[in-house]
C-alpha cells in the first residue's frame, strides 16, 4: 500500500531529473485511451452475452411445449386427453393450452395481425412448466404416443443447447478480446518506455555517474508511464461508456444487438479498466526499464 502511495505521490526531484518524453508520452496516453475504449466494448459484449446465455438457460430450461395436430373435429378431445396425461405425470407443475389470442400473437410477427386462425389447421399448443425435479421426457413421449397420437412433445433441448453454447462461445471470445487488448496495451507501452529510455541514455549515464541506483532511475520512468496509461485509459473508458449509453435501447423486438450494454451494477465494471491499464503499464515499464538499464551497463 505504501508503495502504491509512493508511486502516486512520486518524488518531484526524481521526476524533474528525467526530461519530458514528448511523443512517447502522447503515444502512451493515446494507446491506453484507444485500448480502454475497445475494452469497454469487449466488456459490454461479454456481459451482454453472459446475460443472454443466462436468460436463454433460465427461460427455456424449465419449460416444454406439447403440439397437438389433429382434424378440427378431434382436436378438443385430443387436448383433453393430453391434459389428463400431463396432470398425472410426475414432475409437471402446470400445463395450460394456449388461447387463440396467444397463438395469434405468436404467429403475428410472421403472418401479420389479420390471420384467420379459426379457419386454418393450426396445431394447438400446450405450455408445460416443470417442477424443480422435472419430468421424464422419454416416459411422457411413450404415454402420449399411446393416448394422444397427434401430440408432439418439444422439451426445447434440441435448439436451446446450441443457443446457450453459442452465447458461451461469444462470451469466451469477449474474454479473449479483453486479454488481447491488455496484451497489446502492455506491448505498446513497453515500446514507448524503451524508446523513452533509449532517448535518455545520456541522462541515465549522468545519473549513474552521480550515484543513482537503477531502481531510482527506473522509478521515474515507471511512475510517468503508469500515470499516463491510467489517465489515457480513464479518458478512453469514459468515452466508451458515453458511446455505449448512446446505443439504441433494447426492447422486446430489439434482440441481441440493441441489448449490448451494461445493466445496473454492471456499469461499474468498466471503471476497473483504468486501474488495470495502470497495472499493465507499471509492470511493462518496469520490465522495460530494468532490461534497458541492464543493457546500458
Amino acid at each position: 500500500m505504501n508503495k502504491v502511495f509512493a508511486l502516486l505521490s512520486g518524488d518531484p526531484n526524481a521526476d524533474r531529473a528525467v526530461p519530458p518524453t514528448g511523443y512517447t508520452a502522447r503515444l502512451t496516453v493515446f494507446t491506453a485511451g484507444a485500448m480502454a475504449f475497445l475494452a469497454v466494448f469487449a466488456l459490454s459484449l461479454t456481459l451482454a452475452t453472459n446475460r443472454l446465455a443466462d436468460r436463454w438457460s433460465s427461460e427455456l430450461a424449465r419449460t416444454a411445449t406439447l403440439r397437438i395436430s389433429a382434424p378440427a373435429d378431434q382436436i378438443d378431445a385430443q387436448v383433453r386427453a393430453a391434459m389428463n396425461v400431463l396432470d398425472t405425470t410426475p414432475g409437471i407443475a402446470t400445463a395450460r393450452p394456449l388461447s387463440t389470442q396467444e397463438q395469434q400473437d405468436l404467429l403475428e410477427p410472421w403472418f401479420g395481425p389479420d390471420l384467420p386462425l379459426e379457419s386454418l389447421p393450426i396445431p394447438q399448443l400446450i405450455e408445460i412448466t416443470e417442477t424443480d425435479v422435472g419430468f421424464d421426457p422419454i416416459g411422457l413421449r411413450a404415454r402420449l404416443q399411446v393416448e394422444v397420437p397427434g401430440a408432439v412433445l418439444d422439451d426445447h433441448t434440441r435448439w436451446r443447447d446450441p443457443l446457450v453454447q453459442a452465447a458461451n462461445r461469444i462470451r469466451s471470445l469477449g474474454f479473449v478480446s479483453l486479454l488481447l487488448i491488455g496484451g497489446a496495451t502492455g506491448a505498446m507501452i513497453t515500446l514507448a518506455a524503451q524508446s523513452a529510455l533509449a532517448a535518455n541514455g545520456q541522462v541515465i549515464r549522468v545519473m549513474r555517474l552521480v550515484g543513482a541506483r537503477d531502481t531510482y532511475i527506473a522509478r521515474a520512468f515507471v511512475r510517468r508511464f503508469t500515470l499516463r496509461a491510467a489517465l489515457g485509459a480513464l479518458a478512453g473508458t469514459l468515452l466508451g461508456l458515453v458511446a455505449i449509453a448512446l446505443l439504441p435501447q433494447g426492447d422486446t423486438a430489439g434482440g441481441f444487438l440493441t441489448g449490448l450494454g451494461f445493466k445496473g451494477a454492471g456499469w461499474l465494471w468498466p471503471f476497473l479498466i483504468p486501474p488495470f491499464a495502470a497495472i499493465v503499464a507499471f509492470f511493462a515499464t518496469r520490465a522495460a526499464a530494468f532490461r534497458t538499464l541492464g543493457n546500458l551497463s
Binding site: V206, R208, L209, R213, S297
Partner: peptide, 24 residues
C-alpha cells in the same frame, strides 16, 4: 550495479565534457 551506485557516492568525478542534465 547497486553497489557500484553506492560506491560512486564516495567518489566525485569531474569529466572532461562535464556531463550535465541540460534541462536542469
Amino acid at each position: 550495479r547497486d553497489e557500484v551506485a553506492l560506491m560512486r557516492r564516495r567518489i566525485g568525478v569531474v569529466h572532461q565534457d562535464c556531463q550535465f542534465l541540460d534541462h536542469l
